[in-house]
Structure formats: C-alpha cells, structure tokens
Amino acid sequence: MQVLQLQMAVQPDPAEVGRARAWARTRLRGCGYDPDAPLSETLVLVVSELVTNAVVHTGCPAVLRLVFPLDVEAETPAVRVEVADASDTPPQRRCAEGDAVGGRGLELVDCLCDRWGWYPDGSGKRVWCEIDRERPPTAASAGVQAMAV
C-alpha cells in the first residue's frame, strides 16, 4: 500500500503541543480532509495527547509523523499518528482521580483509536495509533470530542 508520510520535529517545550495541533490541521487540510469532520478533530486531539506525553514525560525532543494511505481501496484505510522520542521509558496508562488535570491522555487515545501501541525504536521508543478512515464516530468518541472543544 502506498502512503504519504509527513513529519515535524518537536522540541521539549509545552508550547510545541499547540504548534503540533496547528501543523496537523494544516496537513489534514492539505491532504483533502475536512478540518471540521469528526476524523480530523479526533486526529488533532490524538496528536495533542501523544505530543503532550512526549514533551511532558520525557523532556526529550520528539518527531511527530502522520501517515496517510493513498490507496482508498485498501482493506483498512487507516490514518496513523506516530510520536518517536529518545526516552526508552514505556508509556504508562494512568488512572486520573476526579479533578486531576492530567493522566487521561492514553485513556483518550485508547477510546478514540482503532489500534494503538508502542515499540522500542533505537535508543528511544515510538508510540503509534491508527484510526480507520471509514469508521463512523461512536457515541463515546463523540462525547470525548465534545469535551475537547
């Protein structure tokens, strides 16, 4: 299957999260995705969560990559988001308490994505997730998207 890969470098600075969201929106629009469609909103939210994890929990530079399938006839035409960083510490799902301001990122990724995971990559790791393009939004993902607005 042919794919289009786009990537940007992310510095270990929380301000980079907003830059990553804006970059992702621009790239989605450039690839023909409606920026207001549920898929685009979900992808931008997932980018935000994965970049936040890399910036906040590793303190290392990272690389954000979006991978778009060019073959719309593919059996699973998924869009893939990857964040690679130089930390070898595995991502940890946390259980956030009531009013906690953090600790929900990987739970959101798990709810919003069709598949996600991580693997060692050189001296660091790569966290990835995939969202099927043709999947209709679920009630759970619509509710999470509404919370993100």
Rank of each mutant, 00 (worst) to 15 (best):
M147N: 12
R19M: 09
G143R: 00
M8D: 08
E97K: 07
F68G: 00
V44T: 02
T42A: 14
L108G: 04
A100G: 07
R135T: 09
P12W: 14
V47T: 10
A146T: 10
A24R: 00
V63L: 15
P120V: 13
P69V: 11
G32D: 11
D114T: 02
Y33F: 15
Q92E: 13
Q7T: 13
D88Y: 06
M1H: 14
L66F: 06
C113L: 06
T89I: 12
H57I: 09
V127A: 12
P136H: 00
E49D: 09
N53P: 01
G98Q: 13
E16Q: 15
A62R: 02
L50A: 00
V55N: 00
R27A: 10
S87D: 13
E82N: 05
R21L: 05
R19S: 06
Q7G: 15
P61E: 09
L50V: 02
A15N: 04
T58N: 00
A20P: 01
A142T: 06
R115T: 10
D71V: 05
V44A: 03
D34F: 02
D114C: 09
A54I: 01
G122Q: 03
A96T: 00
P61M: 08
Y33A: 03
R27N: 04
A37H: 14
S48P: 09
I131L: 15
A9Y: 13
T42D: 07
P120R: 15
L106N: 00
R93P: 05
A86Q: 11
L70P: 07
Q92P: 01
P120G: 05
E107N: 07
P69K: 07
V10C: 01
L43D: 11
R133C: 13
T58C: 00
L66E: 03
G18S: 06
E49A: 10
V63C: 14
E49V: 02
P12N: 14
V51G: 03
M147F: 07
R126N: 14
P136V: 11
V51S: 01
R19I: 03
R21E: 08
R29L: 08
L106W: 04
P137R: 01
E16S: 08
V44C: 03
V83L: 01
T26E: 15
P38A: 07
D121T: 09
Y33P: 02
G103W: 11
S48C: 06
V67S: 15
A140I: 11
L108T: 07
A146C: 11
D110G: 02
L45R: 02
P137V: 05
Q11F: 14
V83W: 01
P120L: 10
L50G: 00
V44Q: 05
S40W: 02
T89S: 14
A78Y: 10
